[in-house]
């Protein structure tokens, strides 16, 4: 077969269902599902009709597909002088559909954490086996601020296949061999695009940027945060913090984890990597009883500084992608955009 699939073109709404039908039938499709009033979650979907396209973004980020909430990293049998280690089963290939540009950027933000000096084979394997289908935004959410970090809400390079809604269908751009493969297997053929994709993206980015409810200017926040490390602001802010893990768990770039062993009665068992939150009291608690971050003030400051400063200084990438989920989900209205404005305001 020498027919080359064009890498950009449009498809119709019914084509989208056909694109996803194969993976859905194979049990390999993860897509947004309306789970409860006000709650949209990425979940396995057997029937493409069950997924929702009526969402600005999910309540919890899709990072769990590449970095699961709990993941077995090894197992052992035996104990004492006779012990064998074994590998967990391979992850399944997945098609992850409906990932917004803020969450696509988050993949790049996390890449140096899990790649980098000691490459993490679990992350790497899941990235290799997951075909990410991005979905550009048509309206900014009430708490979105991706453009403040220079992220376009229309498209992102991390997707294997990038979809941009162009009523009544979608502009499709395949950005990797995996994206090509998904297209080819589905048998969906692309129609010629009406507009040059790059032109469309630029125009729409400008259009959407004007409609953001509020935008921050994070210039200088890194320096401000460093200067204000000892300021009583953090203690004041932490008064209302509950010390739960909501912000960290809905966030697409939070990556802190714990490593926990579980044993069966016969001594065999497994080691798991599980999400953890730097806001939990025992996060840095040492066996001796000493805790370098003993109160919510230090812990909250640490998380916010990680997002606004530390990640950038370590990896040259902004730690926050402006998805706004923490703003929506925090039960006590700790708002990172407000923190940015406060920090900058205190410097003048």
């Amino acid at each position: 077969m020498s027919v080359t699939t064009p890498t950009a073109g449009t498809i119709s709404r019914p084509d989208l269902a056909r694109l996803l039908a194969g993976p859905a039938a194979d049990g390999r499709l993860v897509a947004p599902v309306r789970t409860a009033p006000g709650v949209v979650l990425f979940a396995p979907v057997r029937d493409p009709g069950a997924l929702t396209l009526e969402y600005v973004n999910s309540t919890v980020s899709p990072k769990g597909c590449l970095f699961p909430q709990s993941e077995k990293i090894l197992g052992w049998r035996g104990g004492g002088p006779k012990l064998d280690l074994y590998s967990p089963p391979e992850p399944q290939p997945l098609v992850l559909f409906g990932v917004r540009p803020c969450d696509l950027r988050a993949i790049t933000v996390l890449e140096p954490v899990f790649g980098g000096g000691y490459p993490d084979p679990y992350w790497r394997r899941r990235r290799e086996l997951t075909t990410v289908v991005g979905l550009g935004c048509t309206e900014p959410g009430p708490y979105c601020f991706c453009v403040a970090w220079g992220i376009s809400p229309v498209a992102a390079p991390e997707a294997d296949l990038m979809l941009t809604p162009v009523d009544p269908g979608y502009l499709v751009q395949s950005q990797s061999p995996k994206g090509e493969e998904l297209l080819r297997r589905s048998g969906v053929s692309l129609q010629a695009a009406g507009t040059e994709p790059a032109v469309l993206r630029e125009r729409r980015t400008a259009e959407l940027t004007a409609r953001f409810r509020r935008l921050i200017d994070p210039t200088g926040v890194e320096a401000a945060a460093e200067r204000l490390f000892d300021h009583p602001y953090w203690r004041e802010l932490a008064r209302r913090c509950l010390g739960c893990g909501i912000c960290t768990y809905v966030c697409p770039t939070c990556h802190c984890f714990n490593v926990i062993d579980r044993t069966a009665p016969d001594g065999s068992g497994g080691r798991y990597r599980c999400w953890d939150s730097c806001l939990f009291e025992r996060f840095t608690l040492q066996a001796s009883g000493h805790n370098p971050r003993p109160t919510r003030a230090e812990r909250l400051r640490n998380r916010l500084l990680h997002k606004l400063s530390y990640h950038r200084s370590r990896y040259g990438l902004e730690g926050c992608t402006g998805c706004g989920r923490c703003v929506a989900a925090c039960p006590v209205n700790i708002d990172i955009t407000e923190v940015v404005a406060d920090l900058k305001g205190m410097m003048t």
Partner: peptide, 12 residues
């Protein structure tokens, strides 16, 4: 199945 174990319920 969708509980994240964020412990917000306990903390609140």
């Amino acid at each position: 199945a969708r509980c994240l174990r964020c412990y917000a319920c306990r903390n609140a």
